[in-house]
Amino acid sequence: MKRFRKIMAMLLAFAMIFSFAACGGGEKEPAEETINIGALYNLTGGQASLDQPSYNGFKLAADQINANGGINGKLINVVSYDGKTEQTTVANNTKKMIDVDKCVVVAGLSDSNYALAAGNICQEKGIPFITSGATLPTLPDQVGDFAFLAPFGDNVQAYAAADYAFDDLGLKKCYLLTDQSMEFTKTLAHFFEERYTANGGEIVLKDNYMNKDPDFSAQIDRFIANKGGAEIIFISGVPDDAGVVVKQLRDKGVTLPIISGDGFDTPLLIEIAGDAANDTYVGTHASLDNQDPLMQDFIAAYKEAYGVAPENAFAGLGYDTMYLIADALSRASDPADPAAIRDAIAATEGLKGVTGTVTYENGSHVPTKSVTINKVEDGKFVFMKEVFLK
Rank of each mutant, 00 (worst) to 15 (best):
K2S: 14
R3I: 13
M16K: 14
M16R: 14
I17S: 13
F20N: 08
G24C: 10
E27H: 10
K28M: 12
P30V: 04
I35Q: 04
G38C: 08
Y41R: 06
Y41S: 07
N42D: 15
L50W: 11
Q52T: 14
S54E: 15
F58V: 07
L60Y: 03
A61W: 02
N66P: 02
A67G: 15
N68D: 13
G70Q: 06
G73D: 10
S80P: 00
Q87P: 00
N93S: 13
T94V: 10
K96T: 15
D111P: 01
S112L: 02
S112F: 00
A115N: 08
A115D: 07
I121L: 07
C122H: 03
G126P: 06
I127E: 01
P128K: 01
F129E: 03
L136G: 06
T138Y: 06
P140N: 07
P140R: 03
Q142C: 08
G144R: 05
F152R: 01
N155R: 10
A158L: 10
D163E: 15
D167N: 15
L171N: 10
K173L: 07
C174M: 15
Y175E: 06
Y175F: 15
L176T: 03
M182H: 10
T185F: 02
T185K: 00
H190Q: 12
F192Y: 13
E193Y: 02
A198S: 15
A198W: 07
N199D: 14
G200Q: 09
G201D: 09
L205V: 11
D207E: 13
Q219V: 11
Q219F: 06
I224H: 11
G229Y: 09
I233A: 01
F234H: 09
D241P: 04
G243W: 00
V244M: 11
V245H: 00
V245A: 01
G253Y: 13
V254Y: 03
T255D: 15
P257E: 08
D262L: 04
A276D: 09
A277V: 04
H285P: 03
S287C: 12
D297L: 05
A301N: 05
K303H: 13
K303P: 05
A305I: 04
Y306A: 06
G307M: 08
V308I: 13
A309N: 15
A309H: 12
A309S: 15
P310D: 06
P310S: 08
Y319W: 12
M322S: 06
L329N: 02
S330K: 09
A336W: 10
P338I: 03
R342W: 01
K352V: 13
T359D: 10
Y360D: 05
E361C: 03
G363C: 11
S364H: 11
S364Y: 09
K369M: 08
S370A: 14
I373K: 03
G379W: 07
V382W: 07
V387H: 00
F388P: 00
L389T: 09
L389Q: 08
